[in-house]
Design a protein around this nucleic acid. Structure first.
Lengths: 335, 335
DNA sequence: AATACTAGTTTTTGCGCTAAAACTTACGGA
DNA sequence: TCCGTAAGTTTTAGCGCAAAAACTAGTATT
């Protein structure tokens, strides 16, 4: 049984397909369709169980009403939370979300982007996974509204929304230093990502400003694995760090694991602070002090930027860095 | 500057659009397109920066290569993890994912489904948020491959993949009982959802089998709020439960909060067990014993079911309940 | 020499829809 | 009477593509 089209409705109602199309798209007013005709069309559509064919409308009008959301992975609670909020904003604006995860894999990101463009997406909210950008620029950039969230690409001058990662890392490190720590291990995430770089910069700047020469920065991924491994390694050194700054809560989870295995207590043996808050942090055996990103603000503003671009209303600004908030808990020992 | 179409390539190469279309879709072999023509088409496509128009192909062929994933919310880590894995499977099969969150709101679920159908999705993986199903059946059901994950709808006889929630809840409750608990508070989630109902059933069955008359089952949502509220209320009673069974880790988080506020210790004052494992549970002040669902297995099998339906290969079975695994930790006191 | 086959290609059609332009009727005013 | 205008509607065209059918040489087979 073939699906009913507006042509079928036109035939059934003895009206033209234009009229039917207009009524169904809520343009009846605009085109002064008579009350009777409107009612007739709507009733017939319901009776014939009409469902619009989005592909046809898209082909004809060039509008897909689709926005792509490209993030590294939903497995990271920060991104999951971000994705959830952004997805909701998108839905509320009447658009549909295509969700893609790059898995921190540039080739996959490229492949995904190629696919997305063939789907005529009208906007893109992305957390780029690298610093390469040919695949972004080369394609449509000037045509396609793009907003970067969390991470961005230096050379590209795209609108972006993120946390002031430098500030957050500086404050976090300072907190450790002010508590008397001198031997601090920083465990970082994806090296090419700007937030990581900014955190690394903030970390080293704080150390330098405190005249601490030892800059111990290790690691290369926002994964539990990475946190575990680097902590394990650090614990084998003769000179065990008195504090660890984990650049994400996933990394912190790895630290926790390693520390527990080696039966080191927080903060008695090792102090810990991490980037990204998480509801569970408060209830850990030692509640962990964290640098909380304002996820809701970030999500909200990024969609606002995006829809400004789409609707061609001027952007109030191009870039925004929110200040993070440090949640002081009990994982830092006063030396 | 107009986007190049296969017609442009046809003109530029002096070949017909059919030939071009075939080469671009990798059907050159099948249609015996000459080597020279193939190369020419591919080169010209690249030179003209050709990007396929998915909407046109979809309109003509009826294939959207799109699968919808409908879940309650990414804010629940169980669903986030599930979504991530399913999304990856979908991508690996060459399809694109539309992500929708119902927010446990039936009206929104209906609205979303309507939208999805107009987009000619070729498959649907859903965690339905209620027991209503007119909007599911009424629409295409027999045409559209649908797989239910985690939750399902009793009357609908759709393929589904989930955990044996009854078993998990029974075992969890039994564990509490065997540790000497008699006054157990169950805090449940969404009442209409089958997993919740099964957990409730398992909970009460275990109590009954142990000849415990007191069935104390409260709550109505898989939210932190709900866990917090019900625990708070329970603590006001003269007869405080000796153990709490939280039907999700989000609920457990609420319990944790309430317990901490009232300065009750786990497990000394109150024992706790919860459904759904989480990496952090192991590192809590008292590591929480949990009923772990095999998320990867569930995700994998659900996509396998889906693609069996799509590719019309026979399903090995319609329904599957995986056994959960209890992760024994330290949150249950021997009475 | 007629036939059959193979390789390589073209022609045609129309999917369902929307945008643009054009048309019709009725009515009120100059 | 003629015209302008508003209200309500139709006609036409074509977006880009893929499926179906058909066509053309050239080569092999009988």
């Amino acid at each position: 049984m073939k699906r009913t089209s507006i042509t079928d409705i036109a035939k059934a109602t003895n009206l033209s397909i234009s009229t039917v199309s207009r009524v169904i798209n809520g343009k009846a007013r605009e085109y002064r369709i008579g009350e009777k005709s409107q009612k007739l069309v709507l009733e017939t559509a319901k009776k014939l169980n009409y469902k619009p064919n989005h592909a046809a409308a898209n082909l004809r009008s060039g509008k897909s009403h689709t926005i792509a959301l490209l993030i590294p992975t939903l497995d990271n609670p920060f991104f999951a939370s971000l994705a959830s909020k952004i997805n909701n904003d998108i839905r509320e604006e009447g658009y549909t979300t295509i969700l893609s995860e790059s898995g921190e894999n540039l080739d996959r990101e490229k492949e995904i982007l190629k696919n997305l463009l063939s789907r005529n997406i009208e906007g893109l909210v992305m957390v780029p996974c690298g610093q390469e950008f040919d695949h972004i620029l080369g394609l449509e950039s000037k045509e396609l509204p793009i907003v970067c969230v969390d991470r961005y690409i230096d050379e590209l001058d795209l609108p972006y929304v993120s946390t002031d990662n430098y500030f957050g890392a500086y404050e976090a490190t300072e907190l450790l230093i002010n508590s008397g720590h001198r031997n601090i291990l920083g465990i970082q995430g994806e090296l090419q990502s700007i937030p990581n770089q900014q955190r690394a910069l903030g970390f080293t700047a704080a150390l330098k400003d405190a005249n601490i020469d030892l800059v111990n920065l290790k690691g290369d991924s926002f994964s539990v694995q990475n946190g575990y491994l680097e902590t394990k390694l650090a614990l084998q050194n003769p000179d065990i760090p008195t504090a660890i700054f984990a650049f994400s809560n996933t990394i912190a989870l790895g630290c926790l694991k390693a520390l527990k295995e080696d039966q080191l207590r927080i903060p008695e043996d090792v102090s810990l602070i991490c980037f990204d808050d998480h509801p569970f942090l408060e209830f850990l055996s030692t509640p962990i002090t964290s640098v909380a990103q304002p996820v809701s603000d970030i999500a909200r503003l990024s969609t606002r930027f995006l829809f400004s671009l789409i609707n061609k209303t001027p952007l109030e600004s191009q870039k925004m860095l929110f200040k993070p908030q440090i949640k002081i808990r009990e994982s830092i020992k006063k030396m």
